[in-house]
């Protein structure tokens, strides 16, 4: 069982991420038992069959970096969990995908970062609307993961608006012109 970061704490997780192997047929691949996050291709191929499981909160969908979140626009109310995959931590497409899901499409369910999820990107991931961070299994020891929670709070008052705090700093806080400060 892998560990995730959720609500500022390390928690045990019971979801399985299904990744297709070469040659797997999205329409026919067997789903593991229990709660499962399926690739978008599986969801699109079997939406009708999987809909009830999604509604029951035991099935989620993950998007790859080249997949347009708009294709899920009609399914968002049914999905309690959407994940976005980071094939490499330096591949930043997932930040825009998450932002679009939250701001453009109004997705309010669990948004999970999966794949090459590292502590030095936690702060950015949270700001873009991810609610759950799932580092690759075995990447961090329990102690390292606890220590990594500090990275959730790298910066206390970021300048620009993002999903977590839509207003930029100049709207959130009174920032003073120089002459007033001097007076």
């Amino acid at each position: 069982m892998s560990e995730i970061i959720k609500s500022g704490r390390v928690q045990a997780d019971e979801w399985t991420v299904l990744r297709l192997a070469e040659g797997d047929d999205p329409a026919a691949v067997a789903l593991p038992a229990g709660r499962v996050i399926v690739p978008l291709a599986v969801w699109l191929a079997r939406r009708d069959a999987l809909h009830a499981q999604a509604e029951a909160g035991v099935l989620g969908v993950w998007l790859a970096g080249n997949e347009d979140p708009a294709v899920l626009a009609g399914d968002l109310s049914a999905l309690a969990l959407i994940a976005v995959d980071f094939p490499k931590f330096a591949d930043g497409r997932g930040y825009s995908i998450a932002t679009l899901l939250r701001t453009r499409h109004g997705y309010g369910g669990e948004l999970r970062a999966i794949g090459d999820v590292l502590r030095d990107q936690f702060f950015f991931l949270l700001r873009c609307g991810f609610s759950v961070l799932q580092p690759r299994e075995g990447k961090y020891s329990a102690a390292q993961l606890e220590a990594a929670l500090a990275s959730l709070r790298d910066f206390s008052e970021p300048y620009q608006g993002a999903v977590d705090r839509p207003e930029p700093l100049f709207r959130r806080q009174p920032r003073t012109p120089l002459h007033k400060e001097a007076a």
Binding site: F89, D91, G92, Y95, S96, F124, L125, Y159, Q160
Partner: peptide
């Protein structure tokens, strides 16, 4: 400068 500093969406272009 302020807008782009640690812009979370555009840190890994």
């Amino acid at each position: 400068r302020q807008w782009s500093t640690f812009h979370p969406e555009f840190a890994f272009l």
